[in-house]
Simulated assay, not measured.
Amino acid sequence: MVDTVPRPCGSRALLFEVGSAAEVAAIVSAVRAAELPEVTELVPAARTVLVEVASGASLDRVRDAARSADPAAGRAGTGTLHTIPVTYDGADLELVARTAGISPEEVVNLHSGAEYGVDFCGFAPGFGYLSGLPEPLRQPRLESSRTAVPAGSVGIADVYSCVYPRRSPGGWRLIGHTDVVLFDPGAESPSLFTPGDRVRFEVR
C-alpha cells in the first residue's frame, strides 16, 4: 500500500505526495478503478497526484480509494497502447551509445524493445514523461540545453523517454525523430498521450 497522508487543497481537492513513480501510478489506477462520479480532475506528476471533486462533494471516497493503491501490483495496462515509428538518427545517438558503453545499434534495440508508461504530462502541451527506459540508457540531460528542438524529436533523460510535441527549447539527449503528431489543438482530444497510456517505439 502507499504510505501517504493527503494534504487538502481548498475544499475540493487532495494532494498526495509520494516517493516514486510507481506510487503515483498506483494512486491514479486506484482512483480510476473506483469510478467515482464526483472526481472532476486527476492530475499526476513526478511525485504527486492531485484529485479534485465537484463542488459540494465529499473527499472521503477519494481517500478510501487511494488507500487501496498497491505499487507492487504494477501498471494496470488499461490505457491505450500507442506505437510510434521512429527514425533513429538523433544528434546525440553516438553520445548516448558512448556513455552507455554500447553500440548505437544496441541503443536502438534497447529503446525500441521496451514498453513505456505515460506517467504524466507537462513542460509543454502534449509532452508526456514516459517511464520504462532500460537501465543502460538512463543518462542525465545535456549540460547545456538546445534553444530549439524540432517537433517529433525522440529523447531520453534520467529514467524517462519523450517525444517533443512541438519545436521548443530542451536538454534531453536526442536519439531519433517521428512524424507522429503528438498535439493537435483542433482535435477533440488534443493530446495523443494521456497518463496511464502505454507507448512502444518501432524502428522505421
Score class of each variant (00 low, 15 high):
residue 162 C to S: 10
residue 115 E to Q: 13
residue 159 V to T: 13
residue 120 F to Y: 12
residue 160 Y to N: 06
residue 115 E to Y: 09
residue 119 D to Q: 11
residue 117 G to N: 01
residue 131 S to G: 15
residue 155 G to N: 03
residue 161 S to T: 15
residue 136 P to W: 04
residue 130 L to V: 06
residue 136 P to A: 05
residue 120 F to G: 06
residue 114 A to Y: 07
residue 126 G to H: 02
residue 158 D to K: 06
residue 105 E to H: 11
residue 161 S to Q: 11
residue 156 I to V: 14
residue 128 G to S: 15
residue 165 P to S: 02
residue 129 Y to K: 10
residue 161 S to D: 07
residue 159 V to I: 15
residue 134 P to Q: 10
residue 154 V to D: 00
residue 167 R to G: 11
residue 115 E to G: 09
residue 111 H to E: 07
residue 162 C to H: 00
residue 125 P to F: 15
residue 106 E to Q: 14
residue 104 P to R: 09
residue 146 R to G: 02
residue 160 Y to H: 14
residue 166 R to E: 12
residue 139 Q to L: 15
residue 109 N to E: 12
residue 131 S to V: 14
residue 121 C to A: 05
residue 118 V to K: 09
residue 104 P to N: 11
residue 149 V to H: 00
residue 150 P to C: 13
residue 160 Y to V: 05
residue 126 G to I: 03
residue 162 C to F: 00
residue 154 V to Y: 00
residue 161 S to E: 08
residue 164 Y to Q: 05
residue 111 H to G: 04
residue 114 A to T: 07
residue 158 D to G: 10
residue 155 G to A: 12
residue 136 P to N: 05
residue 155 G to Y: 01
residue 132 G to H: 07
residue 114 A to F: 09
residue 127 F to G: 00
residue 133 L to G: 04
residue 130 L to N: 02
residue 113 G to A: 13
residue 148 A to H: 04
residue 154 V to H: 00
residue 107 V to I: 15
residue 160 Y to A: 04
residue 107 V to T: 13
residue 149 V to Q: 01
residue 138 R to S: 13
residue 105 E to K: 11
residue 152 G to V: 04
residue 138 R to C: 14
residue 145 S to Y: 04
residue 151 A to M: 09
residue 163 V to A: 06
residue 110 L to E: 07
residue 163 V to Q: 03
residue 124 A to I: 03
residue 164 Y to P: 03
residue 136 P to Y: 06
residue 130 L to D: 01
residue 149 V to L: 00
